[in-house]
Amino acid sequence: MPNEIDLLLVERIGGLAGFGVAGSRIRCRGQLAFNSLPDTDQRLVEALFKGHGKSKPSAQRDTFSYRISCARKFGAKTVEVPEAALPATIIACVKDELI
């Protein structure tokens, strides 16, 4: 089947307000078609899903991270990526909402 149904599911988590964590009343989610991304961003996402490094400690505090999955293209794997490492095209697809 064509790539048009390879949907990336994106969730913003963390931050000073603890988005999306247990007990949080703020949720921030979005989705976009993988093939709607520019080529370089598609390659970046593919590289993220191919990665298998162990995370090292970081000095960043209260920054957002993003959980990304794409079941059709990358199976059950979910990656968690710091905001500073994600292209704006992906960050732009999520919306903050109160629940």
């Binding site: 298998h52 995370s55 970081s58 979910t78 710091p82």
Partner: peptide, 13 residues
């Protein structure tokens, strides 16, 4: 669903 969460390692950066 299994979740193999990780953040970008230095070599990828």
């Amino acid at each position: 669903m299994s979740c193999q969460c990780f953040i970008i390692p230095e070599d990828v950066l």
